[in-house]
Design a protein around this nucleic acid. Structure first.
Lengths: 227, 227
DNA sequence: TTTTTACATATTGTCGACAATATGAGTTTT
DNA sequence: AAAACTCATATTGTCGACAATATGTAAAAA
């Protein structure tokens, strides 16, 4: 799974983890002001560790800090998400190409198993897509791991995927794209199995482009509804 | 120029900036232990702001922190640098492709001017390559800016380029690659001017691959000398 | 009525002291 | 002599209080 660590280090680490969770799940709304004293009290700690946690989250781009004016949850507007998906496309495309030469047969078999698992999950509980969303990230991250590029793992795992999960929770109601997504995942795995890095990269890029299109439409509808 | 802000915000921001500077220039050696009390005293501040700065630098991947055991300057071994250049290749390649459609004619002309400036600098002071190194980053960052992708600018500007500068200071003695690099830069600008994104991307990728090869050889020699 | 100013309040920024934990030297045991 | 243990020391983690800065409100001026 992804970042399900109980996080039992320093208080700052705990706060950082809990805050990230709250932000990602939408419990803390986008743009919301983060009051240090209040949060510290809620978490049962002093303001020191909490401030360190905020600094950490700032580095993860989950909050935006303004000197002497506090921190707010980041707002994922359309432009930001568009940028995010462009970066993902480049990064995961590369990861896929390299993974095709680096992953072991066992790891690729593991990916197939993961997709089988997703398939039964989808058929079992048609509407409840949350698990699939998390599973989707698992799939993507497995491939990134397959690239053996630690920097990539850090960047995508500890940072971008958080933003993605945040975006998902926001637009999770009507996520009917799970079917085609699974199909695309299977194609990607087959390309990896054939050690065809170029094809795997291309399929992954298309997959992410498709995901962005889907998200983009949702945002458009949202904006229409708001207007 | 790049990150030459005097940084006059909170003490934590000042500390963060000064530490980053010291790390990048090699004044603080790789792997060196960072003592909170000592640094706080040197900067004339308490340990609170300094700890926040360390948390920030941790997010920028310039230091590595171990709970209850302190922070150390990150170590750029060959694998880390290899990963970094792979990521750069993907990211800047994309930036270049998009920049070809997004940059204004004026901005591209600006790039030409920048390269002219580099050329006279190189001819004037053959050995002193430091300025060119910084200038090289300026060139790359201008193109990233041209992609209009804020996330990319953040990632490359505030993070990866710091690591690059760090790497440069380490292997700066024999940097005779400035000649061919300039030539490649010119080719890239011409591709941009012709609005040929595909070509621009390809040239940029090759350029970065070449840079990595050069760095890699240097590291090999270093390791031989050490053994 | 609108704008400006002054002030009380809330929030962030900073420090110093103390507690918890790791580090390393010296001692004991095998 | 090598390994394991003990304890003094150094370093990190945490807290509460105070200073500096921003925020919102109400009175005064236009």
């Amino acid at each position: 799974m992804l970042s399900h660590t109980p996080e039992q280090g320093t208080l700052a680490d705990i706060a950082s983890h809990r805050l990230a969770q709250s932000i990602v799940t939408g419990e803390l709304a986008q743009g919301q002001k983060l009051n240090e004293a209040e949060l510290a009290e809620r978490f049962g700690m002093g303001r020191g560790p909490l401030r360190e946690a905020l600094r950490h989250l700032e580095g993860m781009r989950l909050v935006k800090r303004i000197p002497n004016a506090g921190a707010r949850v980041v707002v994922l507007d359309r432009k930001t998400l568009s940028d995010l998906y462009a970066v993902r496309e480049a990064l995961e495309g590369m990861a896929c190409r390299i993974a095709a030469t680096q992953m072991s047969d066992g790891e690729i078999e593991q990916l197939r198993k993961l997709l089988d698992h997703h398939e039964v999950q989808i058929k079992k509980q048609g509407g409840k897509v949350y698990a699939q969303s998390e599973g989707d990230l698992d799939f993507h991250f497995q491939i990134v791991r397959g690239s053996r590029n630690q920097m990539l793992m850090d960047m995508l795992g500890s940072e971008q995927y958080q933003l993605l999960r945040m975006c998902r929770h926001r637009t999770s109601r009507n996520a009917q794209r799970t079917g085609p997504a699974l199909q695309q995942h299977r194609q990607i795995v087959e390309a990896l199995a054939q050690r065809d890095g170029e094809l795997a990269e291309m399929l992954m890029r298309r997959h992410i482009q498709g995901a962005w299109q889907s998200i983009d439409e949702m945002i458009s509808k949202e904006e229409e509804a708001a207007a």
